[in-house]
Nucleic acid binder design. Structure first.
Length: 644
DNA sequence: GAGAAGACTTAGTAATGACATG
DNA sequence: CATGTCATTACTAAGTCTTCTC
């Protein structure tokens, strides 16, 4: 029997294109296929078809397939029966039939500090026990970060650190302010400098080692495919860094051992081996879930998973499904909007609250807002969990009537600030909801996400609050692209339009980023480039002028040619200048806005693909390699007429 | 049917890598 | 070749929604 490693190598050598398909194949299959477009179109991408063409299969050396008894059997079965693949669309929650992987990669063990690197307590050097030293290094590594100045961080850290100390250390080290980690900190800085200064050869060696690990542990076999795993490395121990004002910041995130790990794989696969001398917590065979490995994390007590990469079939299908749900919403959104507007007038408070909340979710793309356990996480809210303190009502503001001002911290403690004019009925309702309430009372006291989602489920199958975000994001992109794309413009200008459409969505969804640290400088650099280009253009124009004058006098072929050359030069420089100017505009407008999140999670990729096809824009200009892998299904599927 | 646990998506930032520039 | 800059990737926290349990 061959090992996974063996197979991996072989596959690399052969440069095996997993998702290849030929037009011929495609046409043959369409005739046989049911109405559901994903079934064949996506299958071209996900490679099911692969097994449908004897000719194609023959062309692939058998060695390309990973050997495992069950896998082998199912492979044969599929090859024998062309129509079988249709059954690969699983029902009743089954996510896979065969799953094999090598388990996780654990964090490297702690390497003790060299003896010359000392920790000082109260000015005196102190040798720490291994356990205490390791936790101390976590703090030392963060010394430059402002986290370590925060009271809560320090308090949590110190409390957890003391738990790792010996009785003796515990009695001695009682005050964090007397701890001096600077020598340790300097040591780590020096280490990272040394790493940067490594020779090319050494760097190359590390790279190769990483590649080996990736090939071994970074892939699994799910059903008939070798799929990339997203996060095959176990999170190393360290100090927890929450976002925003997190009550648990600084707590010790403990080291995960094999004994903490639950492995999930198929019964008849080759099970992953725990490291020598250890054992897994459990090996289970649950094909109703998609994860390969899980463990319980000690900060919130929640479960963490190792799952597949977005390029995998299982993630891709789910993603496609998400956009199809959003497209179904498109068909009934008018009705739903009419409904909630009616509900603003309801006699029942709970229905009015539900209707106003839904209006916010729809109009402002707010998140649902589940309840959170107080004291366990940062104080952030979404729609259903808004409190009175988060909105202000203005019967009139800045020349507009019935203005609601939102100001709250949302997911990741990102501030949402917005002033929106609303319908009078909404305004009156809000006034009513706020009557006789304290600032920290819930705005929607008769509503939560579960009630809201139950209601939505009745309006449309599969409808939940987040579908509105997906729907509004995608429809906005589509509509903005229509509005902003100018037939006349060149490719860079069209891409600017695309980015602007993307930006409109990012603003809608409130996707923010910290302005890059070097933003001002890089902007200045770009500006000086533009200035230089302007000068160059002026020069080129001058040269053209004199060449023209010259040609007028001389009237010979040679000088005419010279004019042409100069003309071309001017054109080229003009284009370059424009490109730079476009780039500057784009960057300036993007200062605090993150486009990535919406591109990756909210915008139906088929809209972008169709747009690229329609205007002859190479899809690489819109999606980088990773994104193209994730959206391969859409790139295969969408033609230029695709409508969301 | 409520609350907890579980599964999965969405999110911003830090680290790394690739490429341009002096 | 060294250095700076920008893009990409890795990381993991923080949401949403579903399922389980009592």
């Amino acid at each position: 029997m061959r090992s996974l490693d063996g197979k991996v190598k072989k596959e690399k050598e052969n440069g095996f294109a997993r998702y290849a398909w030929t037009p011929h194949l495609f046409c043959v299959l369409i005739c046989k296929l049911p109405a559901d477009p994903f079934l064949y179109k996506a299958s071209t991408h996900f490679g099911w078809l692969f097994f449908c063409s004897p000719q194609h299969v023959k062309s692939e050396p058998e060695d390309n397939f990973y050997y495992s008894p069950k896998y082998e059997k199912s492979l044969k079965r599929q090859r024998d029966d062309d129509d079988e693949w249709e059954e690969e669309r699983y029902t009743d929650g089954v996510k896979w039939k065969f799953l094999e992987h090598k388990g996780p990669v654990f964090a490297p063990p702690y390497e003790p500090l060299p003896s010359h690197v000392k920790f000082y307590y109260d000015g005196k050097p102190m040798k720490l026990s291994l356990e205490a030293e390791e936790v101390a290094t976590f703090f030392a590594k963060m010394l430059d970060h402002e986290y370590t100045t925060k009271d809560i961080f320090r308090k949590n850290f110190f409390k957890d650190w003391r738990k790792e100390m010996t009785a003796e250390e515990k009695s001695k080290i009682t005050d964090l302010t007397k701890c001096d980690f600077t020598e340790m900190s300097e040591y780590f800085k020096a280490q990272s400098e040394a790493r940067k200064a490594m020779t090319k050869e050494d760097k190359q060696k590390i790279k190769e080692e990483n590649e080996r690990t990736l090939q071994q542990y970074g892939f699994c076999i799910m059903d008939n495919h070798r799929e990339r795993i997203a996060n095959f490395r176990i999170e190393p121990p360290g100090l927890f860094r929450g976002r925003g004002d997190h009550p648990k910041m600084g707590m010790l995130k403990r080291r995960i051992r094999p004994e903490d790990i639950i492995v999930n794989c198929s019964k008849d696969s080759k099970h992953p081996e725990p490291p020598p001398g250890t054992r897994w917590k459990e090996v289970r065979h649950d094909n109703k879930v998609t994860w390969l490995v899980s463990w319980t994390e000690n900060i919130q007590g929640s479960i963490k998973y190792i799952m597949l990469n977005p390029s995998s079939r299982i993630k891709g299908e789910k993603d496609w499904q998400k956009y199809e749900t959003a497209r179904r919403l498109k068909k009934c959104v008018d009705h739903i909007r009419n409904q909630y507007r009616e509900d603003w007038k309801s006699k029942e408070m709970r229905i009015r609250q539900r209707a106003v909340a839904l209006y916010f979710i729809d109009k402002l793309a707010l998140r649902a807002g589940n309840e959170k356990e107080e004291g366990e996480t940062a104080d952030t809210v979404g729609c259903c969990s808004l409190r009175v303190e988060h909105i202000s009502l203005y019967p009139e503001k800045d020349g507009q009537e019935y203005v609601v001002e939102f100001d709250f911290l949302g997911k990741d403690s990102i501030r949402y600030y917005n002033k929106v004019p609303v319908e009078k009925r909404v305004f009156k309702n809000l006034q009513l909801f706020m009557e006789n309430k304290e600032l920290d009372d819930d705005l929607f006291d008769r509503l939560n996400t579960s009630i809201l989602n139950k209601h939505l489920q009745e309006l449309m199958d599969g409808l939940t609050a987040k579908v509105f975000r997906t729907y509004n994001a995608s429809i906005t992109l589509q509509q903005q692209l229509k509005e902003l794309t100018n037939v006349e413009e060149n490719i860079p200008a069209k891409i600017l339009s695309y980015n602007r459409a993307n930006r409109a969505v990012a603003i809608l969804c409130n996707h923010q980023r910290a302005p890059p640290k070097t933003f001002e400088k890089s902007m200045q650099n770009l500006q000086s480039k533009i200035d230089a280009k302007r000068d160059q253009l002026a020069d080129a124009k001058r040269e053209l002028k004199s060449a023209k004058a010259d040609a007028k006098v001389r009237k010979d072929e040679k000088s005419k040619k010279a004019v042409e050359t100069k003309k071309k030069a001017v054109q080229r420089v003009e284009e370059q200048l424009m490109k730079l100017e476009v780039q500057a505009t784009d960057r300036e407008e993007n200062k605090q806005i993150a486009l990535g999140t919406s591109k990756l999670n909210y915008l139906d990729p088929r809209i972008s693909v169709a747009w690229c096809k329609k205007w002859g824009i190479p899809v690489e200009k819109i999606y980088n390699k990773t994104q193209r892998e994730k959206f391969a299904w859409a790139i295969d599927m969408a033609d230029q007429d695709f409508e969301f």
